[in-house]
Structure formats: structure tokens, C-alpha cells
Design a protein around this nucleic acid. Structure first.
Lengths: 153, 153
DNA sequence: GTGATTGCAAAAGGTTTGCAGGGAC
DNA sequence: GTCCCTGCAAACCTTTTGCAATCAC
């Protein structure tokens, strides 16, 4: 494994992704898209802002937001409004569901064939032709349940 | 049908709902809860603010937010984060899902036992204790599908 | 009477916008 | 060279908070 060549590959990849959509390639855009793509889960605008600034100082938060809007509009990135403070962003690979912890704000992705099937079926029953759906489940993750219990004992 | 007696009934009803939960009954609370309850669909804090002020002038927006938080904490009201500007609130009768038509914008509520069960099950598998979930399915409603077909013929 | 609730004013926090200079094509 | 993109600063908008006066119980 060579970290640097991986990074270069990713950079080229990401630049191509932008060009394919007729977008100009700027260091900021490539970096932001790369960050989201290599982030394992979800990432906030502020996370991105801080990380980008380590590599590209003087990048402004407004650039981050503008870029995120752009990437979302072009279907490269998905926006996830959790209601726990900031909006989260994720790489738009395949549809999935979200488990959102209302205590720590952590978001877990999951997929479930049965769930997908039922949603399609129910939509059809109501005469809908579904194009897209999102499922957000709010609750306490196992860590926060544990903490809550510990606090009470 | 007598509009006024209906309103009085609702008001008494709503006051009881508050009392049952050990909450003090104030005109603001009763009014806000009544508004949400009689709103057919979803309503924003600002909608509520404006409507409350027509009937109870000088009510502050902060009171609206504080009341909404309170009502949500006591399970009387559900918060719906749409990502389109403001948060929406709805009367917490029974859990349901949203079918949202991307053409006409109409939102249909539906319920489905199977879907509810699967969501609970999947959450449990991931160690979550779910408190709330929202399922939004985007697509074309039957009317808009029809229109689209008609337009093409 | 007592503690909870309200209105007011101000702040917080995330996100957006106008503008002039600089960069991608 | 042209138009788009960026950094900067300021504004925006929804939501939250501190405080003193008022109200429900």
C-alpha cells in the first residue's frame, strides 16, 4: 500500500468525475469531493472546512458550502438533514437507510432488502411510482444506551 | 355542525391533554397544541407564530419554540426535519410514512404494520433503541403519472 | 404564595450572499 | 481573453438563552 499514490489516484479520479459533469476543476472542489468520497461515513460542512484548511489554507467556509451545493445538484453528494445541529454530507454511492443517534449524533448506514421491497410495494399500492426514498430512524445507539444506564446506577 | 362548540370542545380536550401529562395549562400552550392538532398536515413554527398572534397578540416566537419543545418532549407533537428551510411539526397521533409527489408536491400519509415492524427489527439488529423514524418516499402520484402519459400522447 | 411560564431583547449557530480580485479553460 | 470561482466580510434566518415581570396552581 502506498498512501501517496492512492491519494494521487483519488485526485485524478475525482477531477474526472467533475469534468464528466461539465464542472471546472479547482483544487478546492477536487479536495472537497475527495474528502467526502474517502470519508467512511458522514461528514459535516465544518469537518470539511477544517480538513480542507489543513491542506489548502485560507479556504473559506462559504466555498465549502457553495461546493457542497454544487456537488449535490450534480448528484455527486447526498445531503442528510438530521435535525441534530449541522447537516451531514455523504458520497452518493448507493441508496441506504440511516440510524441516527439522538444523543451523540452518530449516523449509521444500513441496507435491508426486505425494507426496500416493502417500500416499493406500499408505494405501488398507493399508486405511486417511487423514484427515491429516505428512511431515517432516530433513537439511541448502543453506546449511548449504555451510558444512560451507567448514569442511573 | 357548530364551529364554535367544536372549538370549545377542542380547547377543553387540549387542556386535558396537557393536564394529563402534568403540564400547566396556559392559553399559549392550549392554543398552540390546538393549532397543531387541527392542522390537517404539517405546520412550521412560523405558521404557528403568526396564527397564535392573531388570537393572542404579543405572543413571542420564543414561546412558540419553547412550547413546541415541551410538547415534543411529552410526545404530543412530532418534529419533521425536511431540510427545506424550517422544521415542520405535526400532531403525534400514530406513526406514519410520507409519500411525496415530486411533480405536484402533494404529501400522502400512510401506515403499514409490516414496514413498522421491519424498521424496529432492523434497528434492534444494530443495537439501536428507536424512538422515532421517518420514511419519505419520493415519486409520482397516480394523477401526475396520468398527466405525464397524457402529455406524451 | 411559590415556582413555572411568559415577553422582550439579545445572541448563537449554521448557512447564504455581494463583491472585487484571481484562476481555469 | 472570458467567464467562472474564490476569499472576505457582512448579512440572513431560524432557533436559543438570560432576565425580570406575570400567571397557574
Amino acid at each position: 500500500m502506498n498512501g501517496e499514490s492512492e491519494r494521487l489516484e483519488l485526485k485524478a479520479d475525482v477531477a474526472e468525475e467533475l469534468r464528466n459533469r461539465g464542472l471546472r476543476v479547482t483544487p478546492q472542489r477536487a479536495l472537497i469531493l475527495g474528502l467526502i468520497r474517502s470519508a467512511s461515513g458522514h461528514i459535516t460542512a465544518d469537518d470539511i472546512y477544517r480538513e480542507v484548511n489543513r491542506l489548502l489554507p485560507f479556504t473559506d467556509i462559504s466555498t465549502v458550502y457553495r461546493t457542497l451545493d454544487l456537488l449535490e445538484a450534480h448528484g455527486l453528494v447526498r445531503r442528510l438533514v438530521t435535525g441534530q445541529g449541522q447537516t451531514q454530507y455523504e458520497w452518493a454511492d448507493q441508496p441506504h437507510f440511516h440510524l441516527i443517534c439522538t444523543a451523540c449524533g452518530r449516523v449509521n448506514n444500513f441496507t435491508d432488502e426486505g425494507l426496500t421491497a416493502i417500500i416499493g410495494q406500499v408505494a405501488a399500492e398507493h399508486g405511486y411510482r417511487p423514484t427515491e426514498f429516505n428512511v431515517n430512524v432516530f433513537g439511541l445507539c448502543s453506546e449511548c444506551q449504555q451510558e444512560a444506564e451507567d448514569a442511573h446506577s
